Amino acid sequence: MRLKLFLLLLLTAVIPSLAQTTGVAGTVVDSNTGVPVSGATVMLDNQGLQATTDPSGEFRISTAKAGDDMLVIVAYGYQDVTMNVNIVNGVIDNLGIIKMLDSNLNNVFYEDQNDMLFDQNLLEDEEGSAQSISALTGASDDV
């Protein structure tokens, strides 16, 4: 009886290691400084799978299906990165270092309950003409 129990436990421990994992992995860094980008969202667009980069900028999606997909990386303060990937069954493809460009987001310089200041450069219409804006100080929604 002990031998059967031992073999059963051994079998249940070995089976998960035989399962093939398929997906992508890599490291996301700032293109200017080389500093890891922590907290970036990495998605396989067609499959709806995603992961978040760890403090060292590393990510891993290991539950993907084989085939072509679009990898999308989104992080605050950076331009989105999109790249085609070919996922091979049974392989975790290490994409290496992926560099993200700074997006120079300056949407809001200061914000509190009563004041909000905007960057004039970001207030352009579709043709690129700057829109005028008046000061938004002291506004209140309280009625």
Rank of each mutant, 00 (worst) to 15 (best):
P36A: 02
G39S: 09
Q47M: 00
A64Q: 07
A75V: 12
I73M: 03
D69K: 03
V81W: 11
G67E: 00
N46M: 04
Q20E: 14
Q20I: 14
V88Y: 01
M43W: 01
A66V: 12
M43K: 15
S31E: 14
N89I: 01
S56E: 13
E58S: 13
N84M: 01
Q50N: 14
A51V: 14
T63N: 15
A51E: 12
A64K: 06
I87M: 03
S17L: 09
V35R: 13
S62N: 13
T33W: 12
V74S: 12
V29N: 11
V72F: 02
S31M: 09
Q20N: 13
V24Q: 08
D68F: 04
T21C: 11
A75G: 09
S38R: 04
T22G: 03
T63E: 09
D54K: 11
A19N: 06
L18K: 06
N32S: 10
D80L: 03
A75R: 08
I73P: 02
D68G: 15
L71I: 13
D45L: 12
M70E: 07
N84C: 00
V24H: 03
L18N: 07
V42I: 14
V35K: 13
Q79V: 08
G67Y: 01
N89D: 14
V37C: 02
Q47L: 00
S17Q: 01
V24A: 05
T82I: 10
G90D: 09
P55D: 02
V29C: 08
Q50G: 13
P55K: 04
L18R: 08
G90E: 07
R60S: 13
A66M: 12
F59Y: 15
V37T: 04
G23V: 13
V85P: 11
D68Q: 14
N89S: 13
L44E: 10
T21H: 15
N46K: 06
V29Q: 13
G77C: 05
M70G: 00
G26P: 07
F59I: 12
G26L: 08
G39C: 09
V74P: 00
Y76P: 05
G57T: 02
A25D: 05
E58Y: 02
V85H: 10
A51T: 14
T41I: 09
D68L: 06
P55A: 06
A19K: 11
R60V: 14
S56A: 14
R60L: 13
V35W: 01
D69V: 03
V42D: 07
I73G: 04
G57N: 00
G77L: 03
T33K: 10
D80H: 03
Q50A: 11
Y76I: 11
M43S: 15
N86S: 15
F59S: 11
T41N: 06
T63A: 12
T52V: 14
M70S: 10
L18M: 14
M43Y: 04
S17P: 00
L49P: 07
I15L: 11
R60M: 12
Q50W: 07
